[in-house]
Amino acid sequence: MRYEAPTTSKAAAELLAAEKGKAYVLAGGTDLLVRMKSGMLEPDLLVDIKQIAKMREISKTASGFRIGAAVPGVEIGEHKALGKAWPGVVEAAQLIGSDQVQGRCTIVGNLCNASPAADTVPALIAAGAKAAIVGPKGRRTLAVEKVVTGPGQTALAKAEIIEYISLPKRAPKSGDAYLRFIPRTEMDIAVVGAGVNLTLARGIIKSARVSLGAVAPTALLVADAAKAIIGSKLDDEALDKLAAACSAACKPINDKRGTIEYRTRVAGVLARRAALIAFERAGGKR
């Protein structure tokens, strides 16, 4: 196996493009090294992107925030402005693993690992985040919900790398939240995850995005759930409709982490709770 640590995105893409064997991008490595250890992956080339300065920073731009692909969770948590604007995204990022894992893990890694249970993905989808992709054929942008196409599969072509995730500029009177269910208090993979992002106008929900994790092969953007609360003050009826829409959208499996029945039900419970938090963060009053 060869290890390379280029200093530009272009060089990284070129290394990946030139490799004839199996090549992987190494960011935090918290998933990749586990798979290498178990023998599931045997890379011929690892391209470490942590030496690429641009990928190591969080920047505030006119159109929102950019979170570099190699920014570890702990730095996302420490970024005050980001936390103020997108508390749901930040809390989702902070839920990954332990403090030790936070020292390494990245949200782009979480996304590209393409697990249906990734914590940041529903939060990013709810936030309307986009992935900035660089590759041999140039740059492109893709909505986060389009990046993962199935368990372990992404829409990235060979040698394409996500450079950063962009979050839109925070509208006034808006808020987001992410909740997940795990059996313990820490260290588990989500059994169900729910992200809600909403904006108010005169106390009423004007727009909303609701996303669920771990209840289908990929994280879901549930339009019906958003519809259920748009135009409401998040009264109990709207919440019931939201929960029902979320449960209806679930296509989960039975596995070691949960049952179909359980996931379906708790998806509604969590979406309801996340909506209440997002609503409060937006300054809403029920």
Partner: peptide, 16 residues
């Protein structure tokens, strides 16, 4: 600790 950050050394490559 790796440059002051707490990490699991099993999830870091020696070369890093």
């Amino acid at each position: 600790t790796l440059d002051g950050r707490l990490v699991c050394s099993c999830l870091v490559l020696g070369v890093e």
